[in-house]
């Protein structure tokens, strides 16, 4: 009995001593080895979304916070946070002006779903846009349009992209196999744009009402053969536009969203339904 109690006492003392000793070392270390950080960085970091998406060009939100505090980055650098974040940060660091740009969202400029744009062959390999591209330049007849293997969807960190399931060849129905972007969730971080091997994802103003849903550089006659919604370069839209908002560089029209009044005349005249209302 006495032996047991002695063991208990020794255990308690030994463990307490180890604990106290470790504690003392830690306490000493925490005062000796403190690193002074600017409290402002933490404050700014709290205002940032902390998604670490990298859209601002810095590897993480904390890196951006540091850059903002040290004046190397603009207070409105965070694309994700947008206006409210920029204002809050400006207030915190005491910057006067907030230089805001118009809110952009990503956009997949292609309407060639399986029922509208055919395929050269049935691809059964790795479901990845880059991999498909290696096999005869992709399985899609159109060499500019969306391949539909969803690299952009995988790259999206904000759950803003969805890929409607692909139907088998020849099966009718609505749009499939072209990513849908939720413009409320999209923060224009550019991850999908970089992930697309065909470089056919781009930005559009969030407020845009119309969209040229094609990026082809092929001639009209060929486009008409392979895709039901491809732009054939007929320039009817340019003629229909009363506000001089449509210009041409290659085949597809370019819309100047500053001039566009969303009168939808171009949408009405487009024979291929390439220009669509959104």
């Amino acid at each position: 009995m006495g032996q047991n109690i002695l063991t208990v006492i020794i255990s308690v003392i030994a463990l307490s001593l180890i604990g106290a000793f470790s504690g003392a070392i830690l306490a000493y270390a925490s005062s000796k080895f403190t690193v002074k950080t600017d409290p402002m960085v933490d404050e700014v970091l709290k205002l940032l979304p902390r998604a670490n998406c990298g859209a601002c060009g810095f590897p993480s939100c904390s890196a951006l916070a540091e850059a903002i505090v040290s004046g190397k980055a603009d207070v409105a650098s965070c694309k994700v946070g947008g206006e409210s974040t920029a204002k809050a940060i400006a207030e915190k660091v005491g910057a006067g002006k907030v230089d805001l740009k118009e809110k952009l969202v990503s956009c997949v400029f292609c309407g060639g779903s399986t029922d509208k744009c055919g395929r050269k062959f049935e691809y059964k390999g790795i479901p990845d846009c880059f991999a498909v591209l290696l096999v005869g330049g992709g399985d899609k007849l159109c060499s500019f349009g969306c391949l539909g293997y969803g690299n952009c969807v995988k790259a999206c960190k904000f759950d803003a992209m969805k890929m409607p399931a692909r139907r088998s060849l020849g099966e009718g129905g609505g749009n499939d196999n072209i990513p849908i972007i939720d413009k409320e969730k999209c923060v224009a971080c550019g991850k999908c744009i970089n992930a697309c091997p065909r470089h056919m994802i781009g930005y559009r103003p969030k407020s845009a009402k119309i969209l040229v849903n094609c990026v082809t550089k092929d001639k009209g006659a060929y486009v008409r053969k392979i895709c039901k919604v491809g732009c054939i370069g007929c320039k009817l839209c340019q003629k229909a536009c009363k506000y001089d908002a449509i210009s041409f560089k290659d085949v597809v029209p370019i819309i100047d969203y500053n001039k566009c009044t969303a009168c939808l005349e171009c949408v009405k005249v487009c024979p291929q339904k390439t220009i669509i209302e959104i």
Binding site: T7, I10, S11, A14, L15, I18, G19, S22, G23, I25, L26, A29, S30, F33
Partner: peptide, 25 residues
């Protein structure tokens, strides 16, 4: 001290403190 049975808990304690200390350094 013949308190080998405390091995697990003592080790956890020491390792935790050690890692914490290293992190600070």
């Amino acid at each position: 001290f013949k308190i080998d049975f405390l091995q697990t808990i003592a080790f956890i304690l020491v390792i935790a403190a050690l890692v914490q200390f290293i992190e600070m350094v």
